[in-house]
Amino acid sequence: MSLIEVTDLRVSYPGKGFRAKPIEILHGVTLDVAYGETVGLVGESGSGKTTIGRAVLGLVKPSGGSIRFAGQEISSLTGTARRGLASHLQVVFQDPYTSLNPSMTIGDILSEPLIVHGVSSGDARGRVRSLLDQVGLPSDSIDRLPREFSGGQRQRVAIARALAPGPQLIVCDEPVSGLDLSTQSRVLDLFLDIQRETGVSYLFISHDLGVIRHISHRVTVLYRGELVETGPTDQVTSAPEHPYTERLLLASPVANPVRQKEKRDKRRELLAADLVYSAGLGGTEEITREGRQ
């Protein structure tokens, strides 16, 4: 049995203007995450990947389909029942600068979710020191403010906060996109180390197929609210079957300038082919807009 099962998920947002029809963002997406597994969810901006994460976390209400966690239907849970899942379902957001309260010390930030779940202040303090060690931060961090840390260090604090209640699943929403490349690598390795130590599962959301390849067991590719390809990471990232997945792979930067130019030229060719095909279907405007991203 999978830890999280998303079946035929549909999400709609209200349209703009009086009597505007709702706009469907997700068109029947199905995916699952096993215990101790990382599933990478990849797609360009606007593909709907973050909406899936928000639906799993209960931050948006599905208009159709189901979400099951450890066998329990959770898509319709509200109030106390939903809050009861918080210790099992956690999130690491994209921006480490805004996801931490600037007026609270690191010790207070990490203690808060523990105290909410009934842990005493003294026990919470001890757990916080253990969490800081787990994410590679010095013990004196406990009395410091977020502004005293670098971006990578703040993201480590955010990871520690997600780990505090001992979750089974962490939704990672673009957690390294705001970091430089060397810091990205260290934070990704931290995610891997934590998974080996704790057995936690990740739904890892990113626009960068290179990042997804580094951390995921399986990959799910989302395009305009629809799942277009899924499979083992090695298979999807080395021999993609869908042209859109190939474009994403070509968009990942490489250190070799010659190879980077070859990838850029190839991606332009694929975009041009899409434009010609779309023109025949009356969808030129949408593809052109995507090509400018």
Rank of each mutant, 00 (worst) to 15 (best):
R224V: 04
Y13H: 13
Q155I: 04
E229A: 05
L271H: 03
F149V: 07
L271M: 14
T230V: 03
P175S: 12
R125C: 02
Y277I: 07
S2K: 08
H242Y: 02
L181D: 12
G65I: 01
A239M: 07
D274H: 02
I142C: 00
D180G: 10
G79Y: 05
I4S: 03
S111Y: 01
V258K: 14
S206C: 03
Q134V: 00
I23H: 07
I23D: 06
R213W: 02
D32W: 05
S182Q: 08
D133S: 14
P14Y: 05
R144F: 04
R186V: 15
V91S: 13
V56G: 09
Q168K: 15
S238P: 01
V60N: 06
P96Y: 02
E73R: 15
E44K: 03
M1A: 13
R196W: 02
Q94H: 11
L85A: 06
T288D: 15
I215H: 07
A20D: 08
Q235E: 14
G199W: 00
D8Y: 00
D234F: 05
G178Q: 14
D133T: 05
L89P: 01
G43M: 09
L250S: 09
S63Q: 04
L270T: 04
G118P: 11
P113K: 07
P113H: 05
K266I: 01
A124D: 12
E262W: 01
S150Q: 10
L181I: 15
H207E: 08
D32V: 01
S130R: 10
Q155V: 06
D173A: 13
V39D: 13
G178K: 11
G58P: 11
T230E: 15
P240Q: 02
V119T: 15
E229L: 04
P243E: 05
G136D: 14
S278K: 07
V116K: 02
R129K: 06
V171C: 08
G58N: 10
N256C: 05
V171M: 09
P138H: 07
G178D: 11
Y35N: 06
E24S: 09
